[in-house]
Nucleic acid binder design. Structure first.
Lengths: 244, 244
DNA sequence: CGTGGTGTTGACCTTTGTCAAGCTGGGTGG
DNA sequence: CCACCCAGCTTGACAAAGGTCAACACCACG
């Protein structure tokens, strides 16, 4: 499941995806591959402990995954969902257990932050710094939601943020296919699955959304959804890559 | 209250404090002062909007302050408390209103992140990147607490983290003098002042802490407090500078 | 076309928030 | 230096949001 290499042997496909992630900063992927790395290939449902002796960085090459903090006993908080091209920071020394888990079959590149920053590639610290600041912004938004928003607000907020990342438009209505389960949504929003389910029910009854199957959601009234979300600005902005 | 300058005229005292903050990375303060900056001098209780057209960075030169997110109507979430030497990141484009407010008379240096990163000082991106990753780690800890911890756990957690930053030892017992009000604590923990007050009461009744006056807390039984905090590791680790 | 994991819905309970009434102690002015 | 005063804190009674437990319904697989 985990393969470690310290120099190339990198398939062209890997280099190509890396280039796509690093292109904005113009960082040559070969430079990154000069550092030691691990490829994490996680099947749907599998997860990997982020051991945390030394900060690490993960590049999401494909799939959908979640960054999870565990609390004794049987509690967990999902810190972020991740998609193709995201950069995930896993600082060492946190006071809880951190894991990365695959929601859909995923492939990630695990690197050591210190080694990466010291690699000599001059644009890399800038690129990572910008990404880290963006991640910090997202993490704070989550803190605000978890600390001060009600269940309906959190669910509306969630739907809007997922729409910004996954939404496709069809005859003027946004359609989104949620890759994560109700449990994942609940663990991300600091709620229970029952509460999430009830909120979906309310939104459905109010004609704000329509659902089909377990995962498809159609946003019928974004205006109202946005009002329910207690956001000051429409939505966090278009997310190109990044996020963590 | 806000003074702007674009080149030195910097008092020696300012340079000296800057050196203390930047020393770990060996960044010469003169280099930073080549960028445009503003000195924010906030009297106790005053606050400043972080307008957010362009990411900014704040260096805490002195005092105690808080980073606050506002939600309509009358809700606020304190994202972090800040002390001498901290670096605070204020990313542009968040979906809520961000402010920095002084808990005690404070002095901060407000800089533009982009300009700073592009300043040419080679160690600056690394330094800021490390700080940003640390801040991200702290922000996630807060998200976990707000999303999945109970009121008693949050209060215990808070006391331990404040002890790690402000605590002084006296005959084997930690004494801490909290600079923030109960309302600040509540707004930081996603609770009400009444709940915070009741939790302090419980801890006092259980003999875990003793209080004296409005702000002095003596930790009588750190073992028990730590158990109540639902942390996996003792505490996040010694914080030297940083944090946001 | 079953079947089991996932999602929904309902009844009830716990935790925390709300409202209101007193208490306290730090700061001010006499 | 002391007394007063008021913001901030504490405590209590009650309400409400969300959690828990349990039964059922629905897909998405085989």
């Amino acid at each position: 499941m985990i393969s470690a290499r310290s120099l190339p042997q990198a398939p062209d496909e890997l280099l190509q995806r890396l280039d796509a992630i690093l292109a904005p900063g113009g960082v040559p992927s070969a430079r990154i591959l000069g550092a030691s790395f691990r490829v994490l290939s996680l099947d749907r449902g599998r997860s990997s402990l982020l051991h945390n002796d030394g900060d690490s960085v993960l590049l999401v090459l494909g799939g959908v995954s979640k960054l999870v903090a565990h609390l004794p006993p049987d509690r967990e908080q999902i810190l972020s969902f991740h998609f193709d091209g995201d950069v995930i920071f896993a600082p060492a020394g946190g006071s809880h257990i951190l894991m990365i888990a695959a929601i859909e079959d995923s492939e990630l590149l695990l690197l050591d932050t210190g080694e990466l920053l010291a690699s000599g590639e001059p644009r890399l610290p800038l690129l990572l710094c910008e990404r880290a600041i963006r991640s910090l912004g997202r993490s704070r938004e989550k803190a605000v939601a978890l600390g001060r928003k009600t269940a309906p607000e959190r669910v509306a907020d969630f739907l809007l943020s997922m729409e910004a990342r996954l939404g496709t438009t069809e005859s003027e209505q946004a359609i989104l296919v949620l890759p994560m389960s109700r449990r994942d949504i609940a663990d991300s929003l600091g709620l229970t699955i029952e509460t999430v389910s009830r909120q979906f029910g309310e939104l459905r009854a109010a004609g704000v959304i329509a659902t089909s199957g377990r995962s498809q959601v159609r946003i019928l009234d974004r205006e109202r959804l946005s009002a329910l979300s207690a956001r000051c600005r429409p939505h966090p902005r278009e997310y190109l890559p990044d996020l963590s």
